[in-house]
Amino acid sequence: MASSEGPRRAAVLGSPIAHSLSPVLHRAAYAELGLDHWSYDRFDVDEAGLPGFFAGLDATWAGLSLTMPLKRAVIPLLDGISDTAASVEAVNTVVFTRDGRRVGDNTDIPGMVAALRERGVDKVESAAVLGAGATASSALAALSQICAGPVTTYVRSRARADEMRGWGDRLGVEVSVADWADAAEAFAAPLVVATTPAGTTDALAAAVPAAPGTLFDVLYEPWPTALATAWADRGGAVVGGLDLLVHQAVLQVEQMTGRSPAPLAAMRAAGEAALAAR
């Protein structure tokens, strides 16, 4: 783990990156933990620029957070990755160890599980996933820990359908695939995970039934989404993207600083304030 002596640096990398909330969350954690010598920044880095960025890092660096499009591109630059990261071929966290190694992990998956458990969702008999991108594979990995039965994924193309079946086989999840045109059928499941870009599920809001189960919508801006609003209005439980972002950041802070537990409440409050100010 990172040394507590001297200045320590961390940052989030991605492209685009200007709207990332990660600096707000991590800096709030440092303030709460009294880590005055720690700094956390953001850098717009694409896949082509990533090797050069890594080459310029010195011993003051403790860790990196990674967002799109770098979660897979970073893997060849690392000395090792966790089983969790390997399970979905995606790294969102890099820790620089005392002996100079670069180790990758994925905190999105345990972050999803923690966000759901915070709202009392420990086990479900079935679930549905809207979408089939990178976040959907992480959702399947999280569901492998809490879903006892089948997961239905709603996708737009045959290629995406094949991808989701492949991820299901790899993660040990019983996956069935349905067409996006039938996505409203997902709402019968006790847990629905929406992993699609902003606006994609807006047209489905009118189809939310009375007394739905739990919706996990991974978006945090704009928030609430039309789907989340309709869901809450009909009495369903809603877990949002900020919940995911905070829980995965908590794990990043703990790994990078070696301090545990990270201050979840302070980090969430900082994130909420930053979003409200936008």
Rank of each mutant, 00 (worst) to 15 (best):
L275Y: 00
A226S: 10
C147E: 09
D162S: 10
L13C: 10
A265T: 15
T201C: 13
T195I: 06
A266C: 10
G131E: 13
A115H: 03
R160P: 01
G49W: 05
V151F: 03
A270F: 04
G168P: 02
V45E: 00
H247G: 05
Y30P: 11
Y220H: 13
H247F: 15
D122V: 07
L244D: 04
L215K: 01
V74Y: 10
E47G: 05
D122K: 09
G131L: 04
L35T: 11
E5K: 14
Q255I: 02
A249C: 11
G63A: 07
A2R: 15
T153F: 01
H26F: 15
Y220D: 13
S126L: 03
A276R: 14
A269P: 08
S157F: 06
W180G: 07
I75F: 02
V192R: 01
V193A: 06
R170D: 06
G52P: 04
A148S: 11
G100K: 12
D122Y: 14
T67N: 11
G131R: 00
G240L: 13
L13W: 08
D79F: 14
T153P: 00
F43V: 09
R72M: 10
E118C: 10
I81Y: 02
A28P: 06
A184F: 05
R42H: 13
R8Q: 03
V193C: 15
A270S: 09
A186D: 07
G131V: 08
L13S: 03
A205M: 06
Q248F: 07
I81E: 05
Q252G: 13
D169W: 09
A228T: 00
D217S: 07
E47M: 12
R165S: 09
L116H: 09
I146H: 07
S144W: 05
S39E: 15
D36M: 09
S87P: 01
A262W: 04
A188E: 08
P51F: 15
Q145W: 01
